[in-house]
Structure formats: structure tokens, C-alpha cells
């Protein structure tokens, strides 16, 4: 599974970055658990669409729905490099995105 792009989301809050992480395939339970390794996973399979939240030690929160090809990342601005590195490790096939305004 690869990260295709990170799209900045305007959430009106000054202190955090929110980006939508787009994947090349739908998020699976296995991918969710890999994303949560070393962190804290909250999983809500009973919702109409199974929702997850991961509080990751690389200083980001990932939230989304299994079956979607995207999820949301929220992090403090000073951790953007750590978040980027963590994503590349977790999604090992990831390639550095070239047109990501958030990382630039």
C-alpha cells in the first residue's frame, strides 16, 4: 500500500496541521493495525462504517474509516518531518510525494 498524496485540510485551527492522506488502495484492518503499532488504537467496528483513531508515538493522530482510500492526519507543525518519516516507514512502499504543499 502506498501513500499517493497528502492534501492539506483547512480546519480553522492555527496550532495544528490537518492533512488527508490518500492511499492507492482501500484501508484494511491489517493496514490500520500496522499504522497503530507502538501507538494507541481506538477501533469502533460497531458504527455503520468502522471508524478508527490512532494516537501514534510519532506525534500524529490518524482517523478514518476502513474501506476508504484516505484517512486524516493531525499533528503539530513542528513534527511534520517526523510524521513524514513515520508514514514512509509504515507504508513501506511509499514514495516521497513531490507536490505536497504540507511538507514543503
Amino acid at each position: 500500500m502506498k501513500v499517493l498524496s497528502l492534501i492539506p485540510l483547512d480546519d480553522c485551527l492555527g496550532s495544528t496541521h490537518s492533512v488527508r492522506c490518500h492511499l492507492d488502495a482501500a484501508m484494511t484492518e491489517e493496514a490500520m493495525r500496522r499504522l497503530a503499532e507502538g501507538g494507541r488504537l481506538e477501533y469502533f467496528p460497531h458504527f455503520p462504517r468502522p471508524f478508527f483513531r490512532v494516537d501514534h508515538p510519532a506525534h500524529f493522530i490518524a482517523q478514518g474509516v476502513l474501506g476508504n482510500d484516505h484517512f486524516r492526519l493531525t499533528y503539530l507543525k513542528q513534527y511534520k518531518d517526523a510524521v513524514r518519516e513515520a508514514l514512509q516507514t509504515i507504508f513501506s512502499e511509499s514514495e516521497p510525494c513531490q507536490d505536497c504543499r504540507t511538507c514543503s
Binding site: D11, C12, F47, P48, R49, F51, G64, V65, N68
Partner: peptide, 16 residues
């Protein structure tokens, strides 16, 4: 986000 992704309900969050 939960309202949006799970239930398909669009709202607005933040400082507006």
C-alpha cells in the same frame, strides 16, 4: 470527521 466519514453528515468544526 466521524459525522462526515461514518454517517455522511456534513457539519463545520473549528473556530468558524
Amino acid at each position: 470527521l466521524m459525522l462526515q466519514e461514518i454517517f455522511g453528515i456534513e457539519t463545520r468544526w473549528g473556530l468558524h
